[in-house]
Amino acid sequence: MKIKLLSGIAIVGMALVFASCQKYPQAEVDAANAAVEAAKAAQANLYVASEFNALQDSLNTVLAAVEKEKSKLFKNYKDEVAKLTATSEMAKNVAANSVAKKEQMKQECTTTLGEIAVLMDANKEMLAKAPKGKEGKAAMEAIQADLTSIETQVGEVNNKFASDDIINALNQAKALKDKATSINTELTEVMVKTKRK
């Protein structure tokens, strides 16, 4: 009986020592790191910056927790594996949100460019109908120069759009739309004035 008890203690003792060699969750760590990198590749740090900061913080927290567990004599990575899986999921969501936000900005940029095109067509049409006499010539020349300038800059917006510089492309498109609108208002006033006469 005494022998059995002592044998048991020895076995349990040895088992505890070997239990400390539980496997490090390398696959989960790699997956979480890869998911965060994927979110970064989706420009989440640009389009959903606060979400990306939170994600980065979550990853750092869980990696520290994994390392803390690894420092222990008796390791148990169960909670950390769950957290790593959650971080990977969170990274996927952040990447998806970034793609969605970027897509939304792209759509807005495309819509704005479409609106500029409509305004420019209307402006050109009104410019063609504007009084041809010497009285309007200088003003019309100035407006034509403005329209040419807008068209050139629309080309710049398209280049930015093509090179994935969506934020700057959208801002420039909005500014161009404002200018095209102001020209439209100016020309509309001229046309109304001309019709009255």
């Binding site: 009084p131 006499g133 010497k134 009285e135 309007g136 010539k137 200088a138 001229v190 004035k193 006469k197």
Partner: peptide, 8 residues
Amino acid sequence: GKGVNWTD
């Protein structure tokens, strides 16, 4: 009354 300076 055209709103611009246009004469010669």
